[in-house]
Structure formats: C-alpha cells, structure tokens
Design a protein around this nucleic acid. Structure first.
Ligand SMILES: [Mn+2]
Ligand SMILES: [Mn+2]
Length: 246
DNA sequence: GGCCTTC
DNA sequence: GAAGGCCAACGCTCT
DNA sequence: AGAGCG
C-alpha cells in the first residue's frame, strides 16, 4: 500500500521527453494543499523562465523529498540529519538528457554537476523533490570564469520586499554610473537578485572583489538602508547585501 | 527519492 | 511484497 | 582552529 497512498507513478511528456513522476499525490505544501504533481506542473508551466535562469549552468539542487511539512528541516552543517539536503553531484542512473559539467572546487575536489539545458531536466529534478535550484554564476563552457556578477539583496528581520526594491533603486543608480546593466529578479520570499552580465574573463575571486566593492559603496551611500555585516547580530533592520553569493 | 539488501 | 539502511554540499569570513 | 554565515 506504500505506493497507492501517494498515487501511482505518472509519466509526463515534457517537450518530447518522458518524465516519470512518483508519488504524484503526495502533499508537498500542506498549508496550500499543493501536491508533488502540482509542483511538477507548476515548474513545467514556468519552464521558459526557469530554463532561461539555469541554462547551461551547473546547478545545485535543494531537495525536500518529504515535502515542506511541519518540522521538516535541512540537514545541518554539522551533519545533524534532516529531511532535506543540497545535492551537487548528479545521481547515478540519471536520464541521458541530463547533461553534466565537471566542476573543480578550490579544494581540488571535483564534482559532476547537473547542467540544466531544457524543461525536462527541471521536471526530472522536481520529481526528486527539488524545491529550489541554485545555479552557479558560470556556464558549462567555462566553469572558472563567471559570466554573471550577482548582487544578492536579503531583507533582514524588520524589512521586506519594499526595502529590497529601494536598495535596488540605489543599485541602479550606481550601475548607471559604472555603465553596467542590472537585471533584477525576485529571490526567495522577499529578496531580490540583480544580475550583471559580464565577460567570462575574470576569476571567481576577482568577481567577488568587485561585488564586495559594489556592496560597500551602497552601504556607504545608504547606511540607513544597507548592511554588509557578515554577523547577523550587527545587521539590524536593513537589507543585507550578500556579496559572498559570488 | 532511489537503490540496495534482507526477511 | 514489505521493510529497513544508506546516500544525497560546498566555501568564505571573522576572531 | 573554530564558529558563523550563505
Ligand atoms: Mn538572497
Ligand atoms: Mn544570500
């Protein structure tokens, strides 16, 4: 009876790829009454945008295969087991349309990471319980040189989307002074990302340094609105610019 | 969630 | 067929 | 090195 409780597996046609969905009736978001198949169909509905954000980027999966239910938590950094986890390496036996890219970490370790190329890859990952995709700021063709500088605006307690938008306005002014173009998108429940397309010409370290400088300048201009303090305790009710995202 | 082993 | 075990991330920052 | 953070 283990299978029928969550429904029999389905097979969806996603742009010509057959994608299996197990436990389609399993409730992933109890409060909203959203099931796993609902989530898969949602991601297929927004696949154009999702694939545009992920295309050819090595991508870490954030998987919640038991759903985002009361009490569920991510596996802790210290190894305390949880219900959810990040996954960098492509699982064995992934379908042949799932491309991978070999990443070398600063430590020298390597990983074959999922490289999203089409909607079916998104649907396949969601079937694994993926709720959130975390793309690297690089493309598979050059994994050592970011093609994107990211300005990550994280509203802290006491602030929200409106404050993030206000900081984005400040960022826009500074971007304009530099002759750069920023592309905003929502991120998480109330945050924003601003992506700046760059030539894949600089190292991670160089891009991070640019992002830090940018963030510190915004903090200098609007200390009432912006913080770049790494320590939560020192941030206050401001928008944290997380330069470490780069 | 998927795979493997064991009962 | 059912049930249980195991696996599924990484690095940077600051003191 | 160890704790704190994404
Ligand atoms: Mn963020
Ligand atoms: Mn962040």
């Amino acid at each position: 009876m283990a299978v029928s409780r969550y429904g029999e597996p389905l097979e969806l046609d996603v742009s010509g790829r057959a994608v299996r969905v197990s436990s389609p009736e399993r409730v992933y978001f109890p409060e909203a009454g959203v099931t796993k198949i609902d989530l898969v169909r949602y991601y297929i509905a927004v696949a154009d945008g999702a694939v545009r954000a992920l295309r050819q980027r090595p991508t870490t999966l954030e998987r919640w295969p038991n759903g985002v239910v009361e009490g569920a938590q991510l596996t802790q950094r210290d190894g305390t087991p949880g219900d959810a986890f990040y996954q960098k390496r492509v699982p064995r036996n992934a379908p042949d349309y799932v491309q991978t890219t070999r990443i070398t970490f600063p430590s020298g370790r390597t990983a074959d990471e999922i490289c999203v190329t089409e909607a079916a890859v998104v649907a396949w990952a969601v079937n694994l319980g993926t709720i959130t995709f975390h793309p690297w700021p690089v493309r598979g063709s050059d994994v050592d040189h970011p093609d994107e500088l990211r300005i990550d605006l994280d509203p802290q307690t006491g602030t929200g989307f409106a404050e993030a938008v206000a900081v984005a306005g400040e960022a826009r002014a500074l971007l304009g002074e530099l002759g750069w173009i920023g592309w905003p998108k929502t991120s998480g429940g109330r945050g924003l990302h601003i992506y700046v397309r760059i030539e894949p010409r600089w190292t991670f370290t160089q891009v991070r340094h640019a992002a830090i400088a940018f963030a510190r300048e915004l903090e200098r201009r609007r200390p009432d609105l912006v913080t770049t303090s790494w320590w939560k305790e020192e941030r206050g009710a401001k928008v944290f610019i997380d330069y470490n995202q780069n």
